[in-house]
Design a binder for these strands. Structure first.
Lengths: 342, 342
DNA sequence: CTGAAAGCGCTAACAG
DNA sequence: CTGTTAGCGCTTTCAG
């Protein structure tokens, strides 16, 4: 039993393949009666259009590629759901990747995707500590007219690309204001892998906010490049050992948040009595952790929907002006920040 | 700037397209010198093989489809990572779906995948409460020789298919034994959407285990069809209101676990003092929740790797004997089960 | 309204 | 070792 083709239908009905094609695609040029007959026998034979053939013919693959920096990040649960919500009704499918924060792997996937004729790419580009990235490749794709929308991360000074990101600086400043209002002056921040756009932005936001709010910046409390995230544990242990803990810590990533909570508990440090903590990326868990975590929330589902919608618009009009969307995050106040003033 | 093809390279070097093809694919029949030249100009022109063309030609798409019952389920974070780990080195890509536990959506995606010429499908099939499913379609695919591996879920009495699942009954029985050892006799179980293979198996395990261990079964404590999972909250509230709580509850799904914890906290019920709880699907969060949750752990990453490996084997040999893998889960003991004997 | 024919990019069989 | 030719399944002219 082979996959039936358009020819099989044609043969069964004693008509030509092109007529079958027209009938099936709903294009003008086939009587209603014939159309019905064609559709019926297609059903019967279990016919399914070979989409690769169409891709070859008119490069409409109805597939979009998603470059995911690390598929184990819960970010993608929400993000992909948002993307899929938008794509499914329009019959676009997702070719998924997982680049593990690795520039070479990203390059491989990008080339594969192009090879498969994706109509567009949703990407959160990887940048290594050294600054190495696939910018050049993305630029080539741009020149070839392949629609690209960056989400979550982007390249600086590359305004020709569309993007959907969260205002990372603002979100950290919101956290800083909240801490300051609660009397905190000794504030630390835990940052993930260096060089990544979001992380650098969050650091900038921290520095900017501290200046703005007259919060002293202490180098030992700016904990950079904590990657893999387990490293958060030893960093926190170190701070504790030297008796050098700030009164509050801001986490800048969901995983980091969890490891900090873990490390804090293992050290028998009480939140928020001895240490206040602001988590990053909201989830039901943050509500359930003891104590419920005050958290910076990114609108991830929305980000996915907007990214997908933008990409589809870009596919329809390659020459539209760049679409740049910056979403606001918010601070969800719960119980992990102590008020030092009372 | 158009995507360069094999022809462009041929023209640039004044050779024939087929020679380029041979040179690029590393097949015999092209001098080393020429091969190098071809590869160089390919690089220069930014050539990337059009994989749709190859798919059309010899139906080797190098894509496998993954039917995901609900992409928001953290299960997929791990599972997809396991799958990707295996596929990437072998140059297979993932065409992702999200069927939201909906049979029609599953059908649509299955047809799309076939249309795109996927070489195989990894599926956790959906079954509705009414028993409605896409079994027929899967059987058709099987007849057409399309490799399919079921993971997490399967159809009863369909032994022709390959599968990788967890021993769901055993895992619940392990939990029951643990509870019994700690003196529990009044045990409840929270089950997700009815009709789903894993859920039905876990219920069977519960019933079987209770019989085996002489634990009385009380109907009100078998809470079925809790879907969407938020319903767990009102169900637990109801039990509490009627003063009819068991001494222990087994959750049978990661999300359910979280909502139960949430509901319990909202009701000011103390775990484990007033109520013992065994969660399902381990994660770092379960360690961090107060109290750390004793949890049934499925080897999800491994499941993903084995599923992908099996599918690849099946692709290589369609006529191999069915591969049926049943993985053992384990109980991670933490602090959410009270010892009633002491 | 319908059929014949060409071609999308690539590979493989067949010649040379 | 290299070129020519045909064809994968479909759409799209171009004829009729």
């Amino acid at each position: 039993m082979q996959k039936p083709t358009i020819k099989d239908i044609a043969k069964a009905l004693n008509i030509s393949p092109s007529t079958v094609s027209r009938a099936l695609s709903g294009k003008p040029g086939a009587s209603e009666e014939l159309r019905r007959k064609v559709i019926d026998t297609a059903q019967e034979l279990g016919y399914m259009k070979n989409l690769s053939a169409g891709t070859l013919k008119n490069s409409k693959s109805k597939i979009i590629g998603v470059i995911a920096f690390d598929i184990r990040n819960p970010f993608f649960l929400e993000f992909l759901k948002g993307v899929e919500d938008v794509l499914f009704p329009r019959e676009y499918k997702i070719l998924l990747s997982n680049v593990d924060e690795n520039v070479d792997k990203e390059k491989t996937y990008l080339n594969w995707m192009i090879g498969h004729g994706v109509e567009g790419i949703l990407a959160s580009p990887v940048t290594e500590k050294t600054g190495k990235s696939n910018l050049r490749l993305y630029q080539d794709f741009f020149k070839m007219g392949i629609p690209i929308v960056f989400y979550d991360r982007l390249f600086y000074n590359q305004d020709q690309f569309d993007h959907v990101i969260v205002d990372n600086q603002d979100v950290i400043i919101q956290a800083l204001i909240h801490l300051k209002e609660n009397g905190h002056e000794k504030i630390g921040i835990f940052l993930s892998k260096k060089g990544i756009f979001t992380i650098e932005e969050r650091l900038k936001g921290f520095l900017k906010g501290c200046k703005l709010l007259n919060i002293p910046v202490k180098k030992e409390w700016i904990c950079e490049d904590i990657y893999p995230h387990e490293k958060a544990i030893e960093v926190l242990n170190g701070l504790k050992r030297k008796n050098n803990l700030p009164t509050a810590i801001i986490a800048t990533n969901n995983n980091l948040t969890k490891y900090i909570v873990y490390a804090v508990k293992k050290n028998n440090i009480k939140i928020p009595e001895e240490l206040s903590l602001i988590g990053f990326d909201d989830s039901l868990e943050n509500e359930l952790i003891d104590p419920p975590l005050t958290t910076i929330k990114q609108p991830i589902l929305e980000e996915g929907k907007i990214a997908a919608t933008s990409l589809l618009s870009r596919i329809e009009d390659r020459y539209a002006r760049p679409m740049r969307v910056v979403l606001k995050g918010e601070l969800i106040e719960r119980k992990s920040v102590k008020n030092l003033k009372s």
